[in-house]
Amino acid sequence: MSVKFSHILIFVFVIGLVMSAFAFLGSVAHPEVLLKGTWKEISWTYDRVDLPQSTDSTVDGFLEEQIKSEITKDLIIHKSETWTFDERANLFLTKEGNQNETLNWRLKGRGHILKLLHSDGVHEFYQIKELTDDKMVLHFENDMHARGIVRIEFEKLRD
């Protein structure tokens, strides 16, 4: 096999791989498409943080409170809510049938960060741990990247 031919073969293989990737993207569900619809919150868990090892329970308690307050300082509590994402990037929060608030939503990164913008300028960030046709699990996102601080699980409501 000549060198030139093998170069062409490698080039065609690489281009083919990239084109296949694009074609595959077209066939899998896009996160923005999966997100659209109405989701009902089914569980809201405040998980314990990973604490440094200490034999002093006073120190442990102090650290836990410090860490909790640092992690949750930007957290807005969403409980027993229904979230409706529409195609115009609006998010309607409903509680017990009453529409509480309208926010804007955006997906960031590789589709793994959900950004919510309140009308008063407040931003919320959630890490999308799981997103399928029926289930969505969000973790509250902050700069500390702590594991599972607030875990919100939703199920999709069918029309």
Binding site: V18, A21, F24, L25, V28, H30, P31, R110, G111, H112
Partner: peptide, 19 residues
């Protein structure tokens, strides 16, 4: 990580980024 979780959309995106 995304391959292990089976999140194929993210797999392709990250693969294209690396590429």
């Amino acid at each position: 990580e995304e391959i292990a979780k089976g999140k194929w959309f993210q797999v392709v995106i990250v693969f294209l980024w690396i590429f």
